[in-house]
Design a protein around this nucleic acid. Structure first.
Lengths: 222, 222, 222, 222
DNA sequence: GATGAATGAGTATTCATTCAT
DNA sequence: AATGAATGAATACTCATTCAT
């Protein structure tokens, strides 16, 4: 790991720690109200006065804590974007990289479980991020940098590792990665956002989905 | 096919035909400008005066053709939503249902090609739809009705058909469908929206992706 | 009667004759629609497009016949203002002046009957006039000129005539006139506009009201 | 007086007291400007930007204090409508009811003086009310309720009282009331709105008009 | 004469943001 | 830190009027 990347990681860990501290009660109420309304109506269609009302504070109070409305959005979406892109909780991440799973399906299973849990705990903010990403260059940049410099590179290494071991087919790693991401995200988004009332056994669902990811819908020819 | 469904289909065909006629030059310019700006900044963040300016018409002219700003949005998104949910062009759809492909991968390949083409020709409007869907109940309803009453039912039948033939594993059809949709949509969205500059051979890409969908990233054990 | 006043009279007679002729079917429909909506919502709150819609004509058609919206108002209110201020129908007016009634109460009774009838036949337009008068200088001017130059002068003469005969008390004629007008207008406006559903025998009501006008609410001391 | 009516009265007294307090300087300026322009051009023909300009505030400031333009109108007209319908200032009203005047003309004289004074002090707002009444259902309702439930009932009692004493003729009380109201309002409106420049001695004018009301234009037959 | 598409100035109202208290 | 009155630019939408067909 280079020094620069190391710094990146340190910053993120610190940021995510700060995240929970140093917030007055009013500030918390503002954030909660904003998350609620942003996710319901979209950022642009939400007015600051509406947030103030729901948070039970004066209109001016919002701007004491966040210079602009966009500032408020970024201070909600920013930290989650960072956390979203780390498979496994940050502090445990290094371990995962250094001690890769022996079998490829274990790796994908671990990611699936962790990210499903994370998404379930942050549905509203994730909805906000999905919808605002293309219109907020700062967020977009953050996602691009984190993804390419960090996530993609590492996962690519892991995929290549499993390809060398013969556990994964010889295809361009990015196609394997894209397909894996599609299948897992498709599962998570479907059950959290599109059909939240469709009843599933989450562990069972992950198991079966990983199965299909590994061996396809045509199944193993034995 | 019941009479009621027949009517549905007829209406859609007529609607999609009208779509291109009966539009004055100014109206076309308004639509083009609206698509452009909506897709760039989002619906709520776009002002009607901006659309008027880009279209080269007076602001009042917009409201002569579309009663409200939302009306303008729906008259852009509505028709595309309808077309989006039909695998294959409407007029050919019946044929496809009545003469199913002999092999499952042919079926998925055909859908992938057709929808990739359609998405490539309507990138901007599709972007608009993705972002406005959760905030526009009318659109949402349209999608729900078309999906469940029409698309899902038919594809489920086809999947069951292939399962009976032993071409697809014995899993709940919805999971097969969800995974298929995830893989194909993941491919299309990635190459059109997320990495539009990443160079690929589209046909080759479809071929390889269908392969993974059928046999998984672990590959066929022969 | 001076030449100038004579001309005035002639003009008015001609105007009121034209009133009913030379109007196409569409023009009539426009006028009817305008009267209807002006009286319901007020002139300023009525839009020309609303009138066009109710009249069943194109928006442009209104402006072919009436240069501006105000023109339309004046061509409705103007003629009625003229007729409103003539006790008795114009053509019979001269007779009434030349052959005054023998008794004062006959004079007031005749006016009351005639104006009640006129008001009953033109309620909507009268409502329009009442409400627009202070905001339309042209109308106001018309009323002022007609009233002072024509109506007031003549009625004053008649009142003085009855005072000389001892039928009316020795008070300034304008106070007699004002009180007479108040009592009669109060009766007419009350039963046509304020309490239109209050049932009365119109002739009986006029009779009793003239009685009070002549002898007061304390009544005749015999 | 029933408890319910008592409450009514209390509310009105409180309302009319609040009326003058709790208003910032800007709010007062807005109200003054609105009264001025509404009375000059009519409610519908007045723009909020015009009011803001005349009041020397930003347009947004109007809407901080009054949710809509109609709100502004009602908060001007509402309180005056209430006060308008009370003969004599509210606090003295009870006295008047409990200690009726010995002579009928004293009663009408007292009302005439009090209402003339009130009208002279509120000419502009009264003009606004007269013109907006038929187009503002809320105001209309207020007038109807106050008039019928309160004013009319009480005055009717007083008239019947004087009829029993033989001071007023045996006619339906409503006709006596209507005529009295017509004569007094005719006097007030004429001298305040129609001929404001016509010079009169107000007390003398009231005296002579009450005379005519009591004994008619034919005068007392002694 | 009649139409209705087009206009652009104007409308009431909302908004993010500031600032004196 | 917190308030909320004040702002003025911006917003979606309306309107009376024009003009080519």
């Amino acid at each position: 790991m280079s020094d620069k990347q190391e710094q990146w990681l340190e910053d993120l860990i610190r940021l995510s720690a700060e995240d929970k501290e140093k917030k007055t009660e009013k500030q918390m109420k503002i954030l909660e109200a904003a998350v609620e309304i942003f996710s319901e109506k979209g950022y642009a269609a939400t007015s600051t006065s509406e947030i103030a009302q729901k948070a039970g504070v004066a209109e001016g109070t919002i701007f004491r804590h966040y210079k602009t409305k966009k500032d408020l959005l970024l201070s909600i979406a920013g930290p989650i974007v960072s956390k979203l892109l780390f498979p496994f909780v940050i502090r445990d991440f290094v371990k995962m990289i250094d001690l890769p799973y022996e079998r490829a399906d274990d790796f994908f299973r671990a990611i699936a479980k962790d990210r499903f849990k994370f998404a379930r705990e942050n549905t509203k903010i994730i909805k906000i991020i999905i919808h605002e990403l293309p219109f907020q260059p700062e967020l977009m940049e953050q996602v691009k940098v984190l993804s390419t410099e960090y996530v993609v590179k590492r996962i690519k290494k892991i995929i290549i590792h499993f390809q060398e071991e013969g556990q994964i087919i010889e295809a361009p790693p990015w196609r394997v990665m894209r397909t894996g991401a599609s299948v897992l995200m498709g599962m998570i988004l479907t059950h959290l956002f599109i059909l939240p009332d469709f009843p599933i056994d989450e562990d069972e669902e992950i198991e079966r989905t990983i199965d299909i990811l590994m061996y396809g819908i045509a199944g193993r020819k034995e």
